[in-house]
Design a protein around this nucleic acid. Structure first.
Lengths: 199, 199
DNA sequence: CAGAGTACGTACCGATCGGTAACATTGTCA
DNA sequence: TGACAATGTTACCGATCGGTACGTACTCTG
């Protein structure tokens, strides 16, 4: 506990670097409240750092937002691919496992949807850094879905992939609108019907 | 032209009342750019009026946003029910007609989705006037969809209604993310498959 | 034509926005 | 011990935010 070896640079609970604290705090605040709704002042205060530290690590608030979305994308990819471990060589099983878990989250209270989707809506300008990162991530997801649908040997993999993407995005936003007991509860069933109909 | 009768209070092309100009301008700007992105200053400038005129007609920017969303809801309802004229006593035909037209709009460039959905994301706070109006509208839509699905005599009308709602909302947001050739192009096909599978 | 009432504009408010300059302090490693 | 990098401190910037006190022009009515 107290006498840690020198090779460990920092204990897990120790105060990390300012840039990391900012990144983590920005993640939570941007996700829960929205990017436009949160000022840099609030971020540095909640992170226990100061504004110059923020601007030493990030060019601007917009770039911090872009960094947040890159972090979000990374975590999303992990959670999307996580079920692969339980379903080796079974893209359908993997996909449905993710959708089932999403269905539960998105139809319970206090759900805030997908940070990437939300960012596209908050920043409709295609040239905005946040918009760009979010759209790139969504394009990659679409491609990944097409890949999985191709592996499922369905009739029209691209059509199925897009259909499932619509259900996915619909769950993200409906989760925020309806909260507990929202339409996302039927996500798994709807996806199964669509897959069934495509075989 | 010049000598209009006294009984006509104002010609159609004359400058309307400040409140109306504000409402119309706010509608366009809020919808295209987002509510948080637009300041009251820009609204009054583009409307050719001044700030006091805005605050005489609306309590606050938040209330103006709520008014915008009520206008949006009204227009939405009209466009949603419009196909009913061509499909009397045919809820399935009406619904598919709306979805087909949405599919076209949402998979072409410059689409900005649903103003109500966007507002829920911009204002996650459930007590915010804009959030409230948007959620109320969405709840009504969900109920209307259930009603239509019940009329279609399907197996589980509530499940089908929620599934279609997911596709609908998914199209709104995906339209913004992917633009031309986005996943919303398959909306009609996916809806038909789900309906088919529910009969 | 007087006067009330309505409709609107001029000019301004304090607060907060994102962002920065200059300097003091700390911890680390050589 | 001394150099260096990272961070904190303080004070500030111009711009913009939502919002308002107050004066003015028009129109309808008596």
């Amino acid at each position: 506990m107290s006498n840690r070896p020198k090779s460990t640079p920092a204990p897990v609970e120790a105060p990390r670097r300012a840039a990391d604290r900012i990144r983590d705090t920005a993640f939570d605040l941007f996700y829960r409240e929205g990017i436009r709704a949160i000022g840099v002042e609030e971020i540095v205060t909640r992170a226990g750092v100061t504004k110059p530290s923020l601007y030493r690590a990030f060019e601007s608030k917009d770039e911090l937002a872009a960094a947040y979305l890159r972090d979000y994308d990374q975590r999303f990819c992990r959670s999307f691919e996580a079920p692969a471990a339980d379903h080796p060589g079974d893209p359908k099983g993997q996909l449905l496992a993710y959708l089932d878990s999403l269905s539960v989250r998105a139809s319970s209270g206090d759900y805030r949807g997908c940070g990437l989707t939300n960012a596209v809506i908050e920043y409709p300008d295609r040239d905005h850094p946040a918009h760009r990162v979010a759209v790139d991530s969504k394009r990659a997801l679409r491609e990944r879905l097409r890949e999985m649908c191709r592996d499922m040997k369905v009739r029209d993999p691209d059509e199925l992939a897009d259909s499932l993407l619509l259900l996915l995005e619909g769950s993200y936003v409906s989760g925020q609108t309806f909260g507990e007991g929202g339409p996302a509860r039927v996500l798994g069933a709807a996806a199964r019907r669509l897959i069934e109909a495509s075989l």
